[in-house]
Design a protein around this nucleic acid. Structure first.
Lengths: 185, 185
DNA sequence: GCATGATGTAATCAATCAATTATAAAATCA
DNA sequence: TGATTTTATAATTGATTGATTACATCATGC
């Protein structure tokens, strides 16, 4: 007993968001059912919908959570850290939860849903603005930083460190993409 | 008359692939119905399935088409073009169909379908290998090239040049992302 | 302690989707 | 021409899905 029954609404919503983050990160908006979210959260499907109204609202809540996480992370980049020379060290410090990255990628791919498209465009603008505001990065450096983050994001979402055995010749690619120790040119 | 009735199977498949490319690029695998593909191709839903067997096979055919297009494009990069100084000029020449880029992004986001994940991991490995083979790029340069291509890809898939009126403050972002004239740092 | 509201489940519904089938019309060829 | 294959549609099916409803259970204040 004393499991997780009859939690307060807000607390239950948090747990559902945690679960939904994981499953949406993998399956995306259309590729994930509310039943999958419910199972991952350990409650009934009907209650998931009751807590968030619609699947779309739930996905947006998940997206906003991921968006907040990455913007917060970027705000913590210190000014003097930002130079192209030690981009790699910078990335090691900016590394974020796989789940957060996966959700963001899925959000980018779901712009056919108007509310998602609007949020995600807003988010990218904000990420860029935060970089320029909080660092002395040039526009081009900010762009390159976002670009590399997106690539890391994508390589992870492709399940890459895991499936390396199926693609042995991808090892050097993954090494240089994810920056698992490297020497400059 | 002489519309497009009773074409040879192969020719009809090509037309369906053209249409499917457009609609999958926007909606992704799960977010697109075979009926949408059929409507875009101007034939019945049943016939689409008849021509490709399953929706999954159709999506894979679309993905392979996009993959071939981008690998072909990358093979055409000349050795001497590849230096970081004129990355921008290089990108102007490598620019590809929005549709191709959209399909690739959707493929990256659909790794929960095993066949798609396997193909897409193979493709990224091949893209990286082609860059290293056909140019004198260092691994890091190849990575940065792919990274920036992916970002451009994503910004376009987000519908960005179009929706700029809804996000006026994103103008500098889009300018530097898509490289519509810029001066180096 | 008991009434009221919050938490939660199970059953169900209408809609949608991929896939199949039956059938027709056109091309091909003997 | 007539038989056969190919191209194509329309109708249908079984399964799935997001959403709703009815109902049960627990907490909380009075």
């Amino acid at each position: 007993m004393a499991e997780t029954t009859h939690l307060k609404r807000a607390k239950r919503q948090e747990l559902v968001l945690d679960a939904a983050m994981r499953v949406f990160a993998r399956g995306g908006y259309f590729g994930t059912t509310t039943t999958q979210v419910a199972e991952a959260a350990g409650i009934s499907q009907g209650y998931v919908l009751h807590l968030f109204g619609t699947k779309e609202a739930l996905f947006l809540a998940v997206l906003e959570r991921a968006g907040d996480a990455i913007v917060d992370q970027m705000r913590r980049i210190r000014l003097e850290e930002f130079d192209l020379e030690n981009f790699d060290a910078l990335y090691a410090r900016t590394a974020l939860d796989d789940t957060v990255m996966g959700v963001l990628l899925q959000g980018f791919a779901t712009c056919s849903v108007p509310s998602v498209g609007a949020y995600v465009r807003e988010l990218l603008s904000q990420m860029y603005a935060v970089l320029l505001e909080h660092t002395k990065a040039t526009p081009e450096q900010a762009r390159d930083y976002l670009a590399r983050g997106l690539l890391i994001n994508t390589v992870l979402a492709m399940g890459f460190p895991d499936h390396l055995d199926e693609h042995p010749w991808a090892t050097p690619l993954v090494d240089v993409m994810l920056g698992s120790d490297e020497t400059s040119a």
